[in-house]
C-alpha cells in the first residue's frame, strides 16, 4: 500500500532533482572521479593492448619494441604508422592452434551455458515457489558459495574427479562401475567445473524473474486443459526469458575466457583461449602475441557484451 502511494511522488522528484543539483561543484566531482578512474584504468589499457599487439617481439624488458611513441614528437608518432606490423595477427591466422582455441572456447562456453541453465532452472523455479518465509534463507544459501573462493571451489573438484578420487571410490564401492572413470583432465571435467562455479550467476537472475511471475496464469491454463509441460513452455518459460538471457550472458561471456577451470581441471590436453593467452604471456613471454590474442577475444565478445549491457540498462529502467 505504501508503495502505491510513494510511486508517483518519487517519479516527480526524480525529474526535478537533477536540474536542481546539476550546477554544484560537488555533483561534478561525483561524476568526474569514478569517470576518470575508469577511463584511465579500464579504457586506456585497452588502447595500450591494441598498440602493443601491433609491435614486434623483442628480447628486452618490456619484451617488445614500442610503436607510436609520443617520445618522438607528433611527426614521429605519425611516421610510426608506417612501421606498424600486423605480423602478430597474421601469425594468429596461420597457426591453426589459435583458431581452434577460439572455436573450442566458444563451443565449451556455449555447451556449459546450456548445461548451467538446465541445472539452474529447476533450482530457481523451486526457490520461487517455496513458501515466502524460507525464500530469503534459500537465497542466502545460493549466494554463500559465491562468497567462497573460486579457486578453492575448483580445487575441491580435483579431489573428487581424480582417478583414485572420491567419485570413483563411491562408484566402485557400489559396483556401478568396475574400472575407474577418467574424468579429470578431460572436457567433461571443464563442463562440471563451469556449471558448478557459475551456477549462482544463473540461478539468481532466473529466480528474480520467476519470483515476480503470476502463478494464477498457470492455474488458468491448466483449468482450460493445458497439460503441465505445455503450460511450462507456453507461459512460465517465455515469462522468465529476461532472467534466462541475463543468466546465460553472465555465464557465457566469462566462461569463454576462463583460465582457472581449464587449467586445473582440463589438464594439458584441453585447449581454451584464456589458457592460450596465459601461456603465451607467462611461458613464452610473448607480449605482442598475447595482446593480439586478447584483442581478437575482445572482438569476439563485443556482441554478447553489448547484449549484456542492453539487458542491464533495461533492468535498470524497469527498476525505476
Amino acid at each position: 500500500m505504501t508503495n502505491i502511494a510513494a510511486a508517483p511522488s518519487s517519479a516527480e522528484t526524480a525529474a526535478q532533482l537533477p536540474t536542481k543539483l546539476a550546477k554544484g561543484f560537488v555533483d561534478r566531482l561525483v561524476i568526474i572521479v569514478p569517470y576518470l578512474w575508469l577511463l584511465f584504468f579500464f579504457l586506456v589499457p585497452f588502447i595500450i593492448v591494441f598498440k602493443i599487439s601491433l609491435s614486434q617481439t623483442a628480447i628486452s624488458m618490456p619484451p617488445y619494441t614500442p610503436v607510436l611513441d609520443f617520445g618522438d614528437g607528433i611527426s614521429g608518432f605519425f611516421a610510426g604508422f608506417r612501421e606498424l606490423n600486423f605480423d602478430n595477427y597474421t601469425w594468429l591466422t596461420q597457426d591453426a592452434l589459435y583458431f581452434n582455441a577460439y572455436v573450442t572456447s566458444l563451443i565449451i562456453a556455449g555447451i556449459s551455458t546450456v548445461l548451467t541453465l538446465i541445472v539452474g532452472y529447476p533450482i530457481a523455479y523451486g526457490m520461487a515457489r517455496a513458501p515466502a518465509t524460507i525464500r530469503p534463507t534459500l537465497l542466502m544459501l545460493v549466494i554463500l558459495p559465491f562468497w567462497t573462493s573460486f579457486l578453492i571451489r575448483v580445487y575441491a573438484w580435483i579431489g573428487i574427479l581424480k582417478p583414485e578420487g572420491l567419485l570413483n571410490q563411491v562408484l566402485l564401492a557400489t559396483g556401478l562401475i568396475s574400472q575407474p572413470l577418467v574424468i579429470l583432465n578431460t572436457y567433461t571435467a571443464i563442463f562440471i567445473g563451469i556449471v558448478y562455479s557459475y551456477l549462482p550467476f544463473m540461478v539468481l537472475p532466473l529466480y528474480s524473474s520467476l519470483e515476480k511471475m503470476d502463478y494464477s496464469l498457470i492455474e488458468a491454463a491448466q483449468d482450460l486443459g493445458c497439460p503441465p509441460i505445455g503450460a511450462f513452455w507456453k507461459i512460465t518459460f517465455p515469462l522468465s526469458l529476461p532472467g534466462v538471457i541475463a543468466g546465460c550472458l553472465l555465464v557465457f561471456i566469462p566462461a569463454v575466457g576462463e583460465f582457472v577451470i581449464p587449467d586445473l581441471l582440463g589438464g594439458s590436453q584441453t585447449l581454451m583461449i584464456g589458457k592460450t593467452l596465459w601461456n603465451e604471456f607467462f611461458a613464452n613471454r610473448d607480449w605482442p602475441v598475447s595482446s593480439a590474442v586478447a584483442v581478437i577475444l575482445l572482438l569476439v565478445l563485443t556482441v554478447p557484451i553489448m547484449f549484456f549491457q542492453q539487458a542491464q540498462a533495461k533492468a535498470q529502467e524497469q527498476g525505476k
Partner: peptide, 22 residues
C-alpha cells in the same frame, strides 16, 4: 555505464593483461 558494466563480465585474462601493460 558501459565502463561500469563491462568489467562485470570481462574475462579476467583480458583485464589482467591490459592493466599490466598500462
Amino acid at each position: 555505464s558501459g565502463m561500469v558494466f563491462a568489467p562485470l563480465v570481462m574475462p579476467e585474462v583480458i583485464t589482467g593483461l591490459s592493466l599490466l601493460l598500462l
